[in-house]
Amino acid sequence: MLEQYIGATVMFIMAIGIACGMVFMTSVLGPKRHFAEKMEPFECGEKQIVSPHQRFSVKFYLVAVLFVLFDIEAVFFFPWAILFKKLGMFGFVEMLFFIIILGVGLCYVWIKGGLDWE
């Protein structure tokens, strides 16, 4: 039963290996010219003008909430895409209704200016 996960496990090991390898190789091979401003964790390389401890605008939060909602919508597409041929026309119409209802929501957000920054 566990044999089916060998491919995924190999992929995970390779992904971790490549990611660690990149960090390791750049730290070994890359040029190193350290100075005080560069070692700052915030705005590194520049003299920092503002404090990193400042509040972010609440506008980001609206974008984040909308992102979560459309992310949950996207999750429903995974099983639908796999079963598309099996479900046939019924699945297509079913998903069409789902998308239309959410399309109304997208239009509402758009018209109300939820996607505008200012």
């Binding site: 609206l62 909430v65 909602l69 949950i72 919508e73 209802i101 509402y108 957000v109 939820g114």
Partner: peptide
């Protein structure tokens, strides 16, 4: 439900 959440988010935050 997702539609209601969208409307709620826009009404509250906007």
């Amino acid at each position: 439900l997702l539609l209601a959440a969208m409307v709620g988010a826009v009404v509250l935050a906007k």
